[in-house]
């Protein structure tokens, strides 16, 4: 059973989501059930099958290297929770 409490904690950290203790327990139980259900895929013989990551046979979609107008700065930053001048602001990144 891959979905231990530690797995949930690890995955929650990777996904940068804080879970309250109670939430952690409920979600880990639910995920345990879901993964147990999903495990039915092990029945399928997948030898010599190619994975489908794109359903359409499209390829080589490209654009020309031509300029398109950028956003005005006020629009680019219009939704910013925190800004300083024309920069977005975030809590200090410690290097």
């Amino acid at each position: 059973m891959p979905f231990s409490l530690d797995t949930v904690k690890y995955v929650a950290h990777l996904a940068r989501i804080e879970l309250k203790a109670q939430e952690l327990e409920i979600i880990s139980n639910q995920l345990q059930d879901i993964v147990a259900f999903i495990d039915m895929l092990r029945e399928v013989d997948i030898n010599a099958i190619n994975p489908t990551s794109h359903i359409l046979p499209l390829q080589n979609v490209l654009r020309e290297d031509t300029l398109v107008e950028s956003l005005p700065i006020e629009k680019a930053l219009g939704n910013a929770p925190e800004r300083k001048g024309s920069f977005f602001g975030v809590p200090k990144v410690i290097e």
């Binding site: 300083k84 001048g85 920069f87 977005f88 602001g89 290097e95």
Partner: peptide, 11 residues
């Protein structure tokens, strides 16, 4: 860029 208590982002 790091400034005082903030880090500033330029995209």
């Amino acid at each position: 860029m790091h400034k005082d208590e903030l880090s500033l982002v330029d995209f």
